[in-house]
Design a protein around this nucleic acid. Structure first.
Lengths: 252, 252
DNA sequence: GAGTGGTCTAGACCACCAA
DNA sequence: TGGTGGTCTAGACCACTCT
């Protein structure tokens, strides 16, 4: 049971893989492919849209269907304990920028409170950070910090995390240490799924690109939660890397 | 600029979110939706296929279009140092099974040799393991082990890793320790992308489900590579979790 | 057999983009 | 202005599944 659109898709896949159609250039137009394979328009479109779903091509209105540069996703194994590296999609290293787009007091979801071990009425500071690589948004970082931690940091360092306009002099973990709490461990859980419509738009994702979701809890040496975060990254630009020391006995 | 198929998709999304269409049940048939919205068949199909791409529904031939159970992916933050937990998709915990589907000597890709720090001519043992949850294949584990390590394990423990029929008495890391090499650290890099055709088939993935790819290098205390692996997991069934101790200074 | 989704056609009009 | 992909129609036949 093989269909016309599958055959066409397979042909196009081969030509992309063997370099007949090069990354960055366009495959033949729908109308040309209709002629070449002798099929109706929707059959070609079906084939092309499968390739788009696989992330091989990106149709561009008024331009053509361009072959995506799937080139080497990361492979930079780093010795950092907690590091997030950006995959070089095409071209060279670009400036990585951080912008706090939102910050303020909030009454968190029950969901978040559970992760922070907080009682129902508790207040938290909610911060949203956009991480850019060049012009493109690569990752959205949402963060929830318990009131207690926020106040301790304000008292000890004068930094008000609920103020969006304040650019902290150092990173959050250092601020925590300066205010008496010592972040000892992070627990992260990673999941991949297809983006919703608004996620796809804000991240500027072409069709066929999933999002990588990382949920983090940071705890101190007494296992008290100091912070929790959700990172939402563009799957084709984000690569997460971990270096983990092995315990006495481990699993293969 | 809003189109009919987008409106229809939005309607259906709402009804799924507010529970009008429940997980596991079917949304109305294409022909019913044609009548309800007064559009042609392909317009409805377009709307439905968008929902499928987002992972909200899975069309089933001869049955209908069933609402996917997107239920809470994991959230079991574990204290294990290296752990991989399976998300409970629906129903309860099922048996997790491991099958070695391939094992033997191989001349590895340059790619793999680079990761293992091996010279061009070096031999490795290549092993492929399928990990199942119940009846479904959840993850494919490809592993490359340098000849030196394989021989040391054979000499010290009698276990021949190149023999597919041999079921090792313990896990690989233990075998390594018993043969004089001490795995000290793993480095893992995680990436998400849409599956290729054959990946989607072997993993039995419905449309709209990405794969989670983990590349691992295990090294001993002298930073010598002992093993490298690629894990390919179904994005909707796999959740990776890490617990990482924080160094003296860290990044937020 | 009745209903389902999957494939396919041959037209049509539209918005977008480059020259 | 001419080419591109995006949307949409109103038909058709197919394979699959359940009863």
């Amino acid at each position: 049971m093989t269909f016309r659109y599958q055959e066409i898709a397979a042909h196009l896949r081969d030509r992309i893989r063997n370099g007949t159609y090069r990354p960055g250039s366009c495959i033949p137009s729908i109308r040309e492919l209709m002629r070449e394979f002798g099929v109706a328009r929707d059959t070609v479109r079906d084939a092309v849209s499968r390739l788009a779903q696989e992330g091989l091509v990106t149709p561009k209105l008024g331009i053509g269907t361009v072959v995506r540069d799937n080139s080497l996703v990361t492979l930079a194994y780093r010795k950092d304990h907690v590091s997030q590296t950006w995959a070089v999609q095409t071209g060279e290293a670009e400036e990585v920028g951080d912008v706090i787009v939102q910050a303020g007091w909030d009454v968190a979801d029950p969901h978040i409170k559970e992760r922070l071990g907080l009682p129902p009425g508790a207040r938290v500071v909610y911060r949203v950070r956009h991480q850019r690589k060049g012009a493109d948004l690569c990752q959205i970082h949402e963060q929830w910090i318990p009131e207690e931690v926020v106040l301790a940091i304000r008292d000890a360092t004068g930094v008000d995390l609920s103020d969006q306009s304040v650019v902290p002099p150092t990173d959050l973990f250092t601020l925590m240490r300066q205010s008496g709490s010592s972040p000892a461990e992070v627990m992260e859980a990673i999941v991949a799924r297809m983006p919703g419509v608004e996620e796809g738009e804000t991240l500027g994702l072409p069709p066929g690109v999933p999002v990588l979701i990382t949920r983090r809890i940071t705890v101190d040496s007494q296992a008290r939660p100091l912070e929790t975060s959700v990172f939402t990254g563009a799957g084709d630009r984000t690569s997460l890397s971990y270096t983990v020391p092995l315990p006495a006995e481990g699993a293969a």
